[in-house]
Design a binder for these strands. Structure first.
Length: 568
RNA sequence: CGGGGUGUAGCUCAGUUUGGUAGAGCACUGCCUUCGGGAGGCAGGGGCCGCAGGUUCAAAUCCUGCCACCCCGACCA
């Protein structure tokens, strides 16, 4: 491709409304343009990258035996009413009406449509298992789209749905998809981890997320280097401390802590470390009462795990300040477990809290705290549960060494769905005995457009994007310096022709611009390899080469350039 | 939905307080010089100052309403 036939539309300045680096660079490199909130046009350069991701995904899905289909983006409400999601799905579902006032939605996902397809097409167990997939535009009316295509409303997704007679077959397909996803992300050249994930409201027994590791990632994952354990921190259990609790040394006393409300304030005021404090959070209980959750001062609440506790209302809701004062007779800043059960709250302690001795907590009296408090002596032994977010250094749940916390961007998610949709929509086949059997399902998603943004979050520098080779819009940038000199022009054209002929995807910057401008553009758009033809080198039959991430260029003999590049 | 902010050229932003003929840099067009790291000069093109009302001799500027976008939070999974 020649630059004179491929307008780059790069920007020197960063558009003001782009917050994260991938969004900034995608705009500056001229990959995307915003049309409206959460809606983006892919320009030629960006589309080349998107297509590369798509192609890797398609090849590996095909290789795994999945069957590509293309389902409508617009779906009739009927199907969603049948599955029950027309009512359940919130305002994220974009609802439409056609000219006859019949209700439709723009699909945020395709379980209903694919289940309908399945029940119409597949009759016999002999046709199972089957895995349909598509690469298609989805729409989710996010409350707050942001970060460019990272969290857009309209986005490109690969979604796959498998159908099985039994759970064993589903498990095999799940494992195959797990392996296929690993191959896909390995091929993209990105650093990623497969992590155990919460199944959320979709339910099902097993779920993994695929995370591209990047410091700017929205998700936190807990990883154990020794065992390979990896899970979303939403899910990662914390183990109860193994050592015995230290014996009490201090007597319990009430101390005045005027105007000291937060753990940090009380900790500084009393000169006691936050890890010796108990933090008391009050949430709504399932039975309509209040539940007090006790956490160590330096720990934070894990809402996903907490919601699974039978005493806690779903969804998790913090009690209002008014309600806490009315029921417990004390404001937030001075709450503590001592005497709280008597005031009518269910008290649940995190395991780490139950392990404390001589701790500090609120006195349930405004402006006062207790110190030197001990379980079994000053207050009954608590009911315990796993309530907290794991932190770096915690033991891995499988008992093998410490956890490390890393940030990740969720780019893939696989679920064992079970019979939720096949049951609701009567997706059945005849088994060997001629009996009707409801099938069991898996679903497997990859955020194709998000992979592009995630790749940039993980691979960029001050100059711009540093594409991993498999995702790069072009492999080689060819820059001619002093191209107005006939020898240079001829040599560059000649090299361009040779690169093209040998199948190398080359971007030839034949624009009549100063070298600095061309170099800056080639680096911004992140082409992995750069060749420079100049009068200086040409005299000695040399061409300059520089990798996008290299410190300094090297020189190559003109004759060996193409062969050398092909070996890279 | 609540709070905060911003809307002026393709991009980044002045100008609004204190009403008086629409600005700069970058980008774009032409010419000249320059040319291995985002050159310089000269000459140009490009604006419903978010939209609609209102006040005024006069509105980018003041008032009212609306819209869009961004940030924080809540919501959602």
């Amino acid at each position: 491709m020649r630059a004179t036939r491929f307008p780059l539309s790069t920007l020197r300045e960063t558009p003001a409304d782009a917050e994260v680096i991938s969004h900034q660079l995608m705009l500056r490199a001229g990959m995307i343009r915003r049309l409206a909130s959460g809606l983006y046009t892919w320009l030629p350069l960006g589309l080349r990258v998107l297509r590369r991701v798509e192609q890797i995904v398609r090849e590996e899905m095909n290789r795994a035996g999945a069957l590509e289909v293309l389902m409508p983006a617009v779906q009739p409400a009927e199907l969603w009413q049948e599955s029950g999601r027309w009512e359940k799905y919130g305002p994220e579902l974009l609802r439409l009406q056609d000219r006859h006032s019949r209700p439709f939605c723009f699909g945020p996902t395709h379980e209903e449509v694919v289940t309908d397809l399945f029940r119409r097409e597949i009759r016999s167990y002999k046709q199972l298992p089957v895995n349909y997939y598509q690469i298609q535009t989805k729409f989710r009316d996010e409350i707050r789209p942001r970060f460019g295509v990272m969290r857009a409303r309209e986005f490109l997704m690969k979604d796959a749905y498998s159908f099985h007679l039994d759970g064993e077959c589903l498990s095999r397909e799940y494992e195959l998809m797990h392996a296929t996803y690993c191959r896909i992300f390995e091929r993209t050249g990105l650093a990623f981890r497969a992590v155990e994930a919460d199944t959320g409201a979709i339910g099902g027994s097993l779920s993994h997320e695929f995370m591209v590791l990047a410091d700017s990632g929205e998700d936190a994952v807990a990883v154990c280097a020794e065992s390979g354990y990896a899970a979303n921190v939403e899910l990662a259990p914390s183990l109860p401390p193994q050592s015995p609790r230290a014996a009490p040394e201090e007597a319990m006393e009430e101390v005045a802590t005027p105007e000291q409300r937060t753990i940090a304030e009380v900790s500084a005021f009393l000169g006691v470390e936050a890890s010796q404090h108990i933090k008391t959070l009050v949430v709504e209980g399932r039975d309509g009462g209040l539940v007090a959750l006790l956490l160590r001062g330096d720990h934070s609440l894990n809402e996903v795990k907490t919601e699974k506790h039978p005493a806690v209302a779903v969804p998790l809701a913090f009690a209002s300040a008014e309600r806490v004062e009315a029921v417990l007779g004390c404001p937030f800043g001075s709450l503590g477990p001592v005497g709280l059960a008597e005031r009518g709250a269910v008290v649940i302690a995190d395991y780490a809290v139950a392990h404390l001795s001589d701790f500090v907590c609120g006195a349930n009296r405004e402006g006062y705290h207790l110190r030197g408090v001990n379980w079994g002596r000053d207050i009954a032994e608590p009911e315990c549960a796993d309530l907290r977010e794991v932190v770096a250094g915690d033991p891995s749940p499988d008992g093998a060494g410490p956890l490390v916390i890393r940030r990740g961007i969720e780019v893939g998610h696989i679920f064992q769905l079970g019979e939720t949709y096949s049951e609701a929509m009567a997706a059945k086949v005849l088994d060997e005995a001629g009996e009707e059997r409801t099938v069991t399902m898996g679903c497997y998603g990859i955020g194709v457009s998000r992979v592009v943004a995630a790749a940039i979050e993980q691979n960029h520098d001050a100059q711009g994007i540093c594409w991993p080779g498999p995702l790069a819009p072009f492999q080689v940038a060819l820059v001619a310096i002093k191209a107005e000199q006939p020898e240079v022009h001829e040599a560059a054209e000649d090299l361009y022709a040779e690169l093209m002929a040998s199948g190398i995807d080359v971007f030839y910057d034949d624009r009549d611009l100063r070298p600095g401008v061309k170099f800056a553009d080639m680096e911004l758009i992140g082409i992995p390899h750069r060749l420079v033809v100049s009068p200086r080198g040409l005299q000695e039959g040399l061409v300059e080469y520089k990798g996008r991430c290299d410190e300094a260029p090297i020189t190559l003999a003109r004759e060996e350039v193409v062969a050398w590049l092909k070996s890279r």
